[in-house]
Amino acid sequence: MTSLVASFSKGRTIRLSEVVERTAAGILVLGVLAWVILNLAKAPTQFFTVLLAGLNNGALFALIALGYTLVYGIIELINFAHGDLFMLGTILCANMMANWLGLTKPGLTGFLGLILTMIVVMIFGATVNMGAEFFAYRRLRNAPKLAPLITAVGLSFIFQNIGQRVNGSSPKQWGTVFDPQSGFSVAGVRIRWSFLVVLTVTALLLLGLTYIVQRTRQGKAMRATAQDQDGARLMGVNVNATISFTFALGGAMAGAAAVLYMETIGTTRFEAGFQLGLIAFTAAVLGGIGNLVGAVIGGLLIGVIQGLNDGAPYGLGQDWSQTVVFSILILVLVFKPEGLLGRRTTEKV
């Protein structure tokens, strides 16, 4: 009501459709809330179990989404190859853990090996992403937007072919250092150790990333470059190195996600990057592309929605998983095109 009055006093005419839109949005949010509460009331244990599973997936979506959002934030490129970089990371992780280190069972050595593998795969992701920027995207920076976009699609296929060549056309199963059964129960809700590892590692990486972006010189250079490249140059910022560094950060996050994914799921597939990449990209858009916090919230939200839809008493089930996720994306974008935390307008000239 107050907003109506305010609008009138500014002399702006109110369109009927605006009122309808707001009402519809309100009803939608209330409807979703009611559905969540209904599920919770019907079967609390089941609700929390699927909620945790959703959070687990959501954390991985968030890590991958950060790669999309970092790159988009700095050069406004949708890096379509990012999901496939993640996929290559899962294959490297599986081979390193199982074939080279011989670690396929739980235990202390397995855990130490996991840390080592994570570092290696993060460096791998960072290096490949920097290479893609250096050899392909950098040269297209002043080209029409479509050129780097198509290049990214091309790279995506190249990565997939490499994955297919190394991993084979069908999925491969691997033993992992996480025992899917081991864990403990709280009030009947099963909490796996792997879930705690995924959540802890994700939280640590997010803290580290936030620290780098907000507090360090490199982060300052990144934020300046994102807003105005020439302006940053005039401050003495090495813009090329800064963009390179941003790709490295995004690649490292994809690498970390790849290790967590591979060790919890135990499967490698050459198409894994396509589906997960698309969902993570959706998460980035949902949260407001270019916004780091938005990517994390978007990732967790999609994970939880998916979890509830697939496993809660009134969920539509796995067959409708993608439909639900993308319907929600479309609805959010219709009402809030800039995403949940995105900026309404860009100041770019």
Partner: peptide, 16 residues
């Protein structure tokens, strides 16, 4: 840099 504070803008002036 519009989305940064005045203080951060000044800091960037002394970036190097």
């Amino acid at each position: 840099f519009q989305r940064m504070t005045v203080g951060e803008n000044l800091d960037l002036g002394a970036f190097l």
